[in-house]
Design a protein around this nucleic acid. Sequence first.
RNA 1: GGCGCAUUCGUCUAGAGGCCUAGGAUACUGCCCUCUCAAGGCAGAGACACGGGUUCGAAUCCCGUAUGCGCUACCA
Length: 505
Amino acid sequence: MTREKGVRVRFAPSPTGYLHIGGARTALYDWLLARKHGGQFILRIEDTDRKRYVPDALDDQMAGLRWLGLDWDEGPEVGGPYGPYIQSERQALGIYQQYAEQLVAAGRAYYCFCSPERLEEVRQERQAHGLAPGYDRHCRYLTPAEREAGIARGFPPVIRFAAPLEGNTTAHDLVRGEITVDNRTQDDFILLKSDGFPVYHLAAVVDDHLMRITHVIRGDEWLPSLPRHVMLYHAFGWELPEFVHLSIFLDPSGKGKMSKRKKLEGGGEYMTFIREFREEGYLPEAIINWLALMGWSPGLGDREIYSRQELIELFSLEGIHPSPAALNYDKAEWLNGVYIRHLDPDDLAHRLLPFIRIAGQESGVAALAEATFEQVRPLVPLVQERIKTLAEAPEHIDFFFIEPPTPSLEELVPKKMTAAETARALGAARETLAALPAFDHATIEEALRSLADRLGLKAGQLFTPIRVAVTGRTVAPPLFETLACLGREKALARIERAERELLDR
RNA sequence: GGCGCAUUCGUCUAGAGGCCUAGGAUACUGCCCUCUCAAGGCAGAGACACGGGUUCGAAUCCCGUAUGCGCUACCA
């Protein structure tokens, strides 16, 4: 049933906001289908609502898609044989006007001169009578003279679709099956607005046809208007594409629709824009993996990690779920951690660098803000399996760049030890470290472990004060690697500082 | 209000009439490992919305109820 050859799919966002997580998932499914079948993924911009236009939205949408690696074969900036790919530009060419007029000429559409005020009155009256709110088809039955009078009045008309007055319309959705509506429940909806711009229904149908789209994958909110689109295809005499309506995302509680940035019960906020995931230090490959499995399943049942290539190979429309999904941020974090751990250390260092610099700028720490790849690369093994997002890295390694605050006695002194004992242990450790022929992980570990033995201390009793002295905190990366990375000079100085702190009190 | 879509552990999901004592993942809890934190290993708790059918047999098919969501614009 699926026409697999020559698959052409489009992602058609409106530039009314930043690239949203739900939009990104739609784009991903489009892209996966196109890549799987060697077809084309087209980006089309539906900017027919000039009131809601947001200037930097388009750039954000494209940047988001590119960050995710969802490259489009036709669309803005890359061109293609069916352009232009921005609807306002197509409108300027008269494309929608032409097709709307074609329906008027065929008796399948008509000019409507009703004012917004009259439409509002009609709506209220119909509602008061328990009817579905909608248009009363007043202008559908205008005489030629009345039509002339309307035009003469100078009020720019809209063009409405003359919906069939009887019978049924049947539409198909690949994941939901057949949907049949009674045509009497359908409104004479507007095709062309009085400003000459098309309404979504006209623009989408015309462009999908003209661009030879084979599969329309879009949000669930379009399902109720699918019959309208089918009617339009029929009126034009065009072949129908396949339709797939994706269910929406719910907020993390699973109770409400997730739309704009919203508050969590706990008081926090959750992310909804792709740019936020990027800024929080998520890897695009992790987001792809996460999103792919949110609303679709390869049916294998026992795997969570899929590479981009595997997703392309396994993807199929049949695996798409009809039910809404609540965003599982915990899983996104976990997945991101998995991907970070699998990264090549050089690669991770490059990705970490901007986050470290930004953290430095925000905290006013010049050494962090000016961090270099050469400085960061040796620290990668210390953080790689400890971070879930790139943005968490700076807080793990900032003490390499800046003198940590003097630790408190409470942090410094292990349980069952006195301040004096701790100071003695630190002194012994300092002397041992100072005398070491080399200052690498293995040498340090061997020396410190045997020192603990000689002092009759447990490993933790010796290592904890050293860690606190050197890093300024009780939770830090493994000690020996940390010391080796810090360098002997700084390590010794910090230990000595802690000793003084212990003795002074 | 009308019309439509949906309903398996908290969450993402496997499940196409007997393979289900309902599987995996995440999150949570405990134990192990261990220089802290992680990572890793093991274990535990946790679901077929409800009610009727159909059938020898239903998470799977049908009907109803409930709940959630969507649409009902010269927005998309």
